[in-house]
Design a protein around this nucleic acid. Structure first.
Length: 285
DNA sequence: AAAATATGCAACCGCGCAGTA
DNA sequence: ATACTGCGCGGTTGCATATTT
C-alpha cells in the first residue's frame, strides 16, 4: 500500500513560479508564517500549488538573506572539505555557508565544482558567460530584472546575509579543531567543533565565530549535525541551531560516558582531488 | 542561419524520520 | 504499539539558454 499523495496532483500547478505567485507566497508567510503547516498553506494563501512546492520556493528563493551568484574560493574550500568529510549531506554543508541553500550547493557541486576539481574543463562557454559572471559579481545584489538568465524569471535578491546567533554551548562537549571557515565570511578568529561517535555515523560539528559588538565581544555559533535524529525541527534546516530541543536533549542525551573522537575535517585540494579520482564510482557517485 | 549538443539550475519526486492521535 | 500526517532531505528531471558544429 503506497502512501497517500500530499496534495491533489490534478489540481496543482507545476513548473516555474510566476512573480505573482511569489509575491502571494511571500506576503502570506511574512504575515502568517506557515500558518500551521505547509500542506494547508497554499489554500490559505490562494495558491494552486503543492505545499511542498511552496516550502521549496520559500526556502530556496524567497526567504530573507538568500545569497545567489558565484561561489567564492573560500566557499569552494568549505564545500570540498565538508564533502570529503561527510559526503552529500547538502543541508549540513549549507548550514556552514550562510545564505546558501542546499539546492544551490548541490547544483554547484554536481555541475561545476566536481568537474573543476577533476580538472574537467567545461566546453568553452567562457567569454560570454564569464562576462556575465563578472557583471553579476560587480553588482553583488542585482535587481530581479537584471538576472543573468535572460527572460527567465528568477527572484528578488536580498541584502547581505546575517549569521543567526545561537546560544553558546559548553565547549567541554566539543573537540576544537583548526578552522576551515573563511575569514571573509566571519570577522575574528573562528573554530570548528567536531564530535564523532565511534561505532556509528553520528557526527556533530559547529563553528564559533568571535565578533565584536558594542558591548564587547560576542560569539556566534552555527552548527549542524549528521544524525537526522537530532536535527531540531524549526531550526530552519539550512541554519540549524541547538535550540532547546537539541541543547536540552541532544548533547546531554549522549551523556558524558560517550566516546567522542576527532575526525579530520580539513582537506586540501589535492587530497580531495585524489579522493574524487579514487572513489568516483561509489562515494562520489 | 539552423540544428545539435552542452550546460546550469529551478523544481519535482520519493523516501525516511518525527510527532501525534 | 500502530497508523497516519507533515516535514525535510537527497537524487533526479525538465527546460531555457549558451555554445558548437
Amino acid at each position: 500500500m503506497g502512501r497517500s499523495p500530499c496534495c491533489d496532483k490534478a489540481n496543482v500547478k507545476k513548473g516555474p513560479w510566476s512573480p505573482e505567485e511569489d509575491s502571494k507566497l511571500k506576503e502570506f508567510i511574512e504575515k502568517h508564517g506557515t500558518a500551521g503547516n505547509w500542506i494547508s498553506l497554499p489554500h490559505k494563501a490562494g495558491l494552486k500549488r503543492c505545499g511542498k512546492s511552496c516550502r521549496l520556493r520559500w526556502l530556496n528563493y524567497l526567504r530573507p538573506n538568500i545569497k545567489h551568484g558565484e561561489f567564492s574560493d573560500d566557499e569552494d574550500r568549505i564545500i570540498c572539505s565538508l564533502f570529503a568529510s561527510i559526503g552529500s549531506r547538502w543541508s549540513i554543508i549549507a548550514a556552514q555557508l550562510p545564505g546558501r541553500t542546499d539546492n544551490d550547493i548541490k547544483n554547484y557541486w554536481n555541475t561545476r565544482l566536481k568537474k573543476k576539481l577533476l580538472g574537467i574543463v567545461p566546453s568553452q562557454r567562457k567569454p560570454h558567460q564569464e562576462q556575465q559572471q563578472r557583471n553579476q559579481q560587480q553588482q553583488l545584489f542585482p535587481s530581479p530584472s537584471s538576472s543573468s538568465q535572460g527572460n527567465r524569471y528568477t527572484s528578488p535578491v536580498p541584502p547581505l546575509p546575517v549569521l543567526e546567533s545561537f546560544p553558546k554551548i559548553s565547549q567541554d562537549a566539543f573537540t576544537i579543531v583548526p578552522t576551515i571557515t573563511s575569514s571573509t565570511l566571519f570577522q575574528g578568529p573562528s573554530y570548528q567543533y567536531q564530535m564523532k561517535e565511534s561505532g556509528n555515523n553520528t557526527i556533530m560539528f559547529g563553528s564559533e565565530h568571535s565578533c565584536s559588538s558594542s558591548d564587547g565581544s560576542s560569539t556566534q555559533i552555527s552548527y549542524g549535525k549528521m544524525d537526522h535524529n537530532y536535527i531540531c525541527r524549526g531550526g530552519g534546516g539550512e541554519q540549524m541551531g541547538f535550540e532547546s530541543s537539541l541543547c536540552g536533549g541532544g548533547i546531554e542525551d549522549y551523556g558524558p560516558s560517550r566516546l567522542w573522537e576527532e575526525a579530520p575535517l580539513e582537506y586540501n585540494y589535492e587530497e580531495i582531488k585524489q579522493l574524487l579520482r579514487n572513489n568516483n564510482d561509489h562515494f562520489f557517485y
